[in-house]
Amino acid sequence: MEKSRSTPQHASGLEALIARARAEAGEKGLPPVEKWNPDFCGDIEMEIRADGTWFYMGTPIGRQPLVRLFSTILRKDEDGRTYLVTPVEKVGIRVEDAPFLAVEMDVSGEGATQVLTFRTNVGDVVEAGPEHPLRFEIDEANGGLKPYLTVRGRLEALLARPVMYDLVARGEEMKIGVQKMFAVWSKGAIFPISPADDLEIFK
């Protein structure tokens, strides 16, 4: 879990941040947050929980359009922390796991021509492939599988459990190098899930 630092003392406040986010969202496509290099203004009391729920000062943000708005100005930097970024400020937030949750998967084709398309809880639609890879971890707490999808930049979506089971159902055993792996195809790329001998952990 990312650690919060100091609370920013800038005068703009949350409402001004929302206004700037709305102004940038008015442009065509997603705001170019990767190109912006504003000063760091400290942290705000905002957190994204592991289930995808956003909180501000301990209270859930119930307005989905506002959550979607904030999601468009998210950026994860090389320091491993996640920020809300506008052209004039960068503020840190806490992220318990991944900032997004993949809640739906569509499958077209099969084998090497298979394409896995995911929808996130904030409305992104992403095709897994070389530019948006899948990666897999084992949950240290319970030994379960945790799949992640790169959405944009360094930002990832954790696959919701039902989506994870759908994904595993599309997997197949194949030899990668000298090792027999359980893996899944998407857009011509192979994404290893685990050694084939470890398949029991998914049952």
Rank of each mutant, 00 (worst) to 15 (best):
A21F: 01
A11M: 07
I61Y: 03
F202C: 04
V168F: 13
P8A: 07
L69K: 12
A112Y: 08
I176W: 04
K35V: 03
L149Q: 09
V178Y: 11
V95I: 13
A189C: 08
E27I: 01
M181V: 03
S108V: 11
S108E: 14
V151W: 03
T82I: 09
M164C: 15
A160S: 15
G29Y: 06
D79K: 10
M57A: 14
F202K: 09
D79Y: 10
G13T: 01
M174T: 06
F40W: 11
T53S: 13
M57K: 15
D97V: 03
D139E: 11
F55Y: 15
P147M: 06
A160Y: 03
F70W: 13
A169F: 05
A141T: 13
A50R: 14
M57W: 10
L116M: 09
V85D: 01
D124Q: 11
T53H: 09
P147A: 05
T72D: 11
V33P: 01
E140H: 15
R81M: 07
G144M: 13
M181R: 12
K175W: 00
D39F: 02
S186R: 09
L14D: 03
L116D: 09
A102S: 07
G177M: 04
G144E: 09
V125P: 07
T7Y: 12
A23L: 13
S12D: 11
G171P: 00
E200V: 08
D51Y: 07
A196Y: 02
Q114C: 05
K180F: 04
Q9M: 10
T53A: 11
G13L: 04
G52V: 03
T72P: 09
P162W: 06
H132L: 00
F118L: 03
R22T: 01
E45I: 02
A102W: 01
R68L: 00
E78G: 08
R161P: 00
D51P: 05
A196F: 04
D51R: 11
L159A: 06
A189S: 14
G58E: 14
E96W: 06
L84W: 05
